[in-house]
């Protein structure tokens, strides 16, 4: 039995340890794509080189092409270390050639670039501006929806259609004017949206201050137990009063910054990590309680556990808090999975 337990524990440790590594495994290199990129670059460079190109360019190209060949060989032999080296060398050479070709007037074969004109004209073509603004407006629409804000985007939508049409018709000057109008309209809408958001922000700030006050109570209680000087306790009490009376978000932030400064000054930050975890867990619990299909008994258990955690934080039982937090996190994860 002891052997099985030890074995089980070993497996658990291995899987948890390597669990972290598996994320990195995703980021491990996929050598096959190196060849694709290198070959594409090679083909492109090859198209650009003409008989008029300098011997240096031609020589470099031969060198680069050779690197691609050995890269392919290395990949066939599963020699990924060499493959990576060859890839980087090849790309370095192609970069050098490309730089040389694009800055050297005589050696660049313009005829081999039939579609380059369209991309060269981007300073006049405002497509990208329009694209970026569309992404931005999409974000604003999503936010407006989140606030149930009555904001009329129809004018903007019409302007986007108009600008798109103007770009399609190569009427770039008109399109730029329309885009300017879009920008002005966005500024107005943004103001309306910020107004709609400000009420919610005040509410969130007050809720956050309330949570922070709870945490501050625990901190003061612990500080008293640990025999922290009356002067520091008094400072914390004053800061607490100031925070309680703060109303708007900027005042709340300012007061909390002052409290943090006191905590830093007197080295009272050692429980902050646990407090942050408590806040996170509390948020998860709140989210779950707003979801359908969650067993009320499970939520009640979780809430009871959270109360125990806070009580233990009050009592300065930090190891117990750590354990309970971990248990509660697991419990909440189970609830999430059961949905």
């Amino acid at each position: 039995m002891k052997t099985i337990t030890t074995f089980g524990l070993l497996v658990l440790v291995l899987s948890m340890t390597f669990g972290g590594v598996i994320n990195n495994v995703y980021a491990e290199d996929d050598p096959a794509i190196l060849l694709k990129i290198a070959k594409r670059a090679q083909d492109q460079i090859h198209n650009q080189i003409s008989d008029n190109s300098s011997d240096k360019v031609k020589g470099l190209f031969e060198e680069g092409a050779q690197k691609v060949i050995v890269l392919e060989e290395a990949l066939k032999n599963n020699d990924y270390v060499s493959a990576k080296e060859y890839f980087l060398s090849a790309m370095k050479i192609f970069k050098e050639i490309s730089q040389h070709l694009t800055t050297s007037d005589g050696s660049f074969n313009v005829e081999s670039q039939p579609a380059s004109k369209t991309t060269r004209d981007t300073s006049k073509d405002p497509s990208n501006d329009l694209q970026r603004l569309q992404v931005y407006v999409d974000s604003l629409k999503t936010i407006a929806k989140r606030y149930d804000a009555v904001i009329d985007f129809s004018e903007l939508d019409t302007l986007f259609v108009k600008a798109r049409q103007e770009i399609n018709d190569n009427q770039f000057t008109q399109a730029i004017e329309t885009i300017d109008t879009i920008k002005e309209t966005i500024t107005e809408l943004n103001t309306n949206l910020r107004e709609a958001a400000s009420h919610q922000e005040s509410k969130r700030a007050t809720e956050y201050a309330q949570k922070y006050l709870e945490q501050l109570d625990r901190l003061i209680e612990n500080a008293k137990k640990q025999g922290v000087s009356d002067e520091i306790i008094e400072k914390l009490e004053t800061a607490k009063e100031n925070l309680s009376s703060a109303e708007n978000p900027s005042d709340i932030i300012q007061e909390i910054r002052k409290i943090m400064s006191i905590k830093d000054q007197f080295e009272l930050t050692k429980n902050d990590r646990l407090e942050s975890r408590v806040l996170q867990i509390e948020k998860t619990l709140l989210r779950l309680s707003q979801m359908d299909g969650v067993e009320q008994d499970d939520l009640a258990d979780a809430r009871y556990m959270l109360q125990r955690i806070k009580q233990n934080l009050n009592d300065g039982e930090f190891e117990t808090v750590n354990e309970l937090l971990r248990d509660l996190a697991k419990q909440l994860e189970e609830i999430k999975k059961s949905l």
Partner: peptide
């Protein structure tokens, strides 16, 4: 769109 990579000094993990 229409861009061709002609040089890079990093190894991509996927494409």
């Amino acid at each position: 769109p229409n861009s061709i990579i002609v040089g890079m000094d990093a190894l991509p993990s996927s494409m």
